[in-house]
């Protein structure tokens, strides 16, 4: 992550504050910063969302676009499922060190993290519904995330934005018919209905997980660390929880220390406890974003929706 250099005095201040339960911006140790969610700002994509965790100008900002493409089946691929391909890129506008090849390592790390959480059966999405004709054609969803600003808590913002984008994704309807060609062999052919109104959402998108990252600072841990808190973090754990309270993925990060096993189980318990509130908060924000989207349809859609103060 973009590393901030803090003086030993600042580090001590943050560590001792966290151990007593105080954080720099007055939050409780399990409180997340303010989250802003917008969907549908990219007209060319099947689904898009932008998530900012933190206040205007000092937050982690991630833009996710979902594009669906029809792929021809090749031998060796699963026969009755579609696939999901994830890609995360950090834009140099987030930090100077991301310029050129500087972001390669963090891109790989975030891509694999996202793939682990949403890139398969464990995401909750019904991949079988993404199959058009078994052994012939299937939908592949390209999830592309662009990290626009990094101010701590990238993994969480990434998963929130991806969940919003997938919930907002609309796939065009496909009509499959059986065609008999000259030699009498019946084949299945499909046709994509080119109607903007006739689109369906993704099956199982409601089961997508949300992630929370727990940073260990001193002997306590906090949720959603700010940039300064991340600079003092010894180790962090990202836990992805589904709406059905299942644990979808756990990944540890951080190079300086390990976790005591008791702390580990405490963190997983806490992750489940706060999951309910997180989902409620997400649903409220998403509903508001969709409503906001609906209002904007009345105006001519130009790029100005994207440039709104966000």
């Amino acid at each position: 992550m973009a590393s901030l250099i803090l003086s030993p005095a600042e580090q001590d201040f943050i560590i001792r504050g966290v151990e007593k339960g105080f954080r720099g911006d007055g939050r409780g140790s399990l409180d997340r910063r303010e989250v802003t969610l917008r969907t549908g700002m990219i007209s060319q994509a099947n689904g898009s969302a932008r998530c900012r965790i933190g206040s205007l100008g000092v937050g982690t900002d991630i833009l996710v676009g979902v594009k669906a493409e029809v792929n021809t089946w090749a031998a060796g691929e699963p026969e009755e499922c579609g696939t999901i391909v994830c890609n995360v890129e950090c834009s140099p506008s987030a930090a100077q060190e991301f310029e050129g090849r500087g972001a390669d390592e963090i891109n790989v790390e975030l891509t694999q993290l996202l793939d682990r959480i949403v890139g398969g059966e464990q995401s909750g999405l019904d991949l079988r519904k993404l199959c058009i004709i078994p052994r012939q054609a299937y939908w592949v969803l390209h999830i592309d995330a662009l990290v626009l600003d990094v101010k701590g808590g990238v993994a969480d913002a990434l998963v929130w934005a991806t969940r919003a984008a997938l919930l907002a994704t609309k796939l065009p309807r496909v009509v499959v018919e059986s065609v008999t060609d000259d030699s009498g062999v019946a084949r299945a052919e499909f046709d994509v209905v080119d109607d903007a109104e006739d689109q369906m959402g993704l099956e199982g998108a409601r089961d997508l997980p949300l992630a929370a990252t727990f940073n260990q600072i001193g002997r306590r841990y906090v949720v959603d660390a700010s940039e300064q808190e991340e600079a003092v973090t010894q180790a962090k754990l990202t836990v992805a929880v589904s709406p059905k309270m299942e644990i979808c993925a756990i990944q540890k990060g951080g190079m300086l220390k390990g976790f005591a096993p008791s702390l580990l189980s405490e963190i997983t318990q806490t992750a489940l406890r706060i999951a309910k509130e997180e989902f409620a908060r997400f649903d409220a924000l998403f509903a508001e974003a969709s409503k906001h989207n609906g209002e904007l349809d009345e105006e001519p859609s130009t790029g100005s929706t994207f440039l709104e103060p966000f």
Partner: peptide, 22 residues
């Protein structure tokens, strides 16, 4: 030091299953 230096889980479980596994 009785420290867990890395933990990675891929796939869905119920929370008590993860605890038992760890």
């Amino acid at each position: 030091a009785d420290e867990i230096t890395y933990l990675l889980q891929q796939g869905k479980t119920m929370p008590d299953q993860t605890d038992r596994a760890v």
